[in-house]
């Protein structure tokens, strides 16, 4: 397994993130171009262009970065928690709970803040439900946790289908956009940024123990890591990250599953590199995807989840084949 120096990959990703941010701020149907960017961002002139930049484009770009980082980070930790490479942040039903609550508020005609608040409440209800069921059984093994979460997630899925089936018109379209992930109405990240920082700090602090936990609870315990508190911490922090991400942008798919694997293929499985790498990679990919989502068929907007899949699938397949060839 010949690999690139992980530090170099992180630096490149950071550079790519900055480039994506500049591009994202410079393109759009209004206030185009890069020459005026510094003046618009840091100047003091009052203009419509400046308002577009500071009140619409910048907050949206920041949110996309935060959500991308949150979902990728949650993906890395969820895969370690469940010891399953197919796990994603939504597998335990967090997004299901959020979706049901958000769709109900949309049907009732609310929008913006209320949908987000309901989504967060729904996600938390799911966390309490899964946590309660698993702790009552007293079995925190990946199998038990996964089965409990998957069954509850399917339950939420059924409710979502029901809600979609009985809705129509404009409500249905905004529901579909919400389900696929959408940044068109997001405010600046605010406290979600704090959630990301907490998650990042936690993940990095437990990064070396994570390397052991993926080898199984017994092996981790034999090598000096108590898996029980670690698993509980992983479950709670992952849920919080996912709930926060879903609250901001709906359930953006694909990212949380694929970004961790992309980074594994690039820099290996050591979580001390994987954690910051996934955060940077996820932020970059989602920012790029959102920039495309609002420009490709402008003035129409696409749900960003569609773009993440369009971008992610070929990128991931290319990385996978590149590694196969190197074996």
């Amino acid at each position: 397994m010949s690999r690139i120096n992980p530090l170099l990959v992180l630096l490149l990703l950071a550079l790519l993130l900055v480039v994506s941010l500049v591009v994202s701020l410079g393109v759009g149907s209004y206030a185009r171009g890069f020459a005026d960017l510094p003046a618009l961002l840091f100047g003091s002139a009052d203009s419509l262009e400046r308002a577009v930049m500071l009140e619409l484009r910048l907050p949206r770009a920041l949110s996309a970065m935060v959500v991308g980082a949150q979902l990728s980070l949650a993906g890395v930790m969820m895969q370690a928690l469940l010891r399953n490479p197919l796990a994603d942040p939504y597998v335990l039903g967090v997004s299901g709970g959020a979706s049901v609550a958000a769709l109900i508020t949309l049907i009732l005609g609310f929008s913006g803040f209320w949908v987000a608040a309901a989504a967060f409440a729904g996600a938390m209800i799911n966390v309490v439900l899964v946590f309660g069921l698993v702790s009552r059984a007293g079995d925190w093994s990946p199998g038990r946790l996964l089965l409990t979460g998957v069954v509850i997630a399917s339950g939420w899925g059924a409710v979502v289908s029901f809600l979609l089936a009985v809705s129509e018109g404009q409500a249905l379209k905004s529901m579909l956009f919400w389900l696929m992930g959408d940044f068109s109405h997001v405010p600046a990240p605010g406290w979600h940024l704090l959630v990301l920082l907490v998650g990042l700090l936690f993940a990095w602090a437990v990064a070396r123990p994570l390397n052991l936990v993926v080898r199984g609870a017994l092996q981790a315990q034999a090598l000096g890591v108590d898996p029980r508190p670690l698993r509980l911490g992983l479950f709670l922090v992952t849920s919080l990250l996912t709930a926060s991400a879903v609250t901001q942008a709906g359930s953006v798919g694909f990212l949380g599953l694929v970004v961790p694997h992309m980074l594994r293929l690039l820099i290996g499985s050591d979580h001390r590199w994987l954690v910051p790498g996934a955060a940077l990679g996820g932020a970059t990919l989602l920012l790029a995807a959102d920039t495309l989502a609002r420009t490709v068929i402008a003035p129409q907007q696409l749900p960003v989840g569609v773009i993440t899949a369009f971008l992610g699938v070929p990128l991931f397949l290319w990385l996978l084949n590149r590694n196969e060839a190197q074996r």
Partner: peptide, 10 residues
């Protein structure tokens, strides 16, 4: 241990 497996590359 008798069993120690991981599906992750390393």
């Amino acid at each position: 241990l008798q069993s120690d497996d991981s599906s992750f590359p390393a």
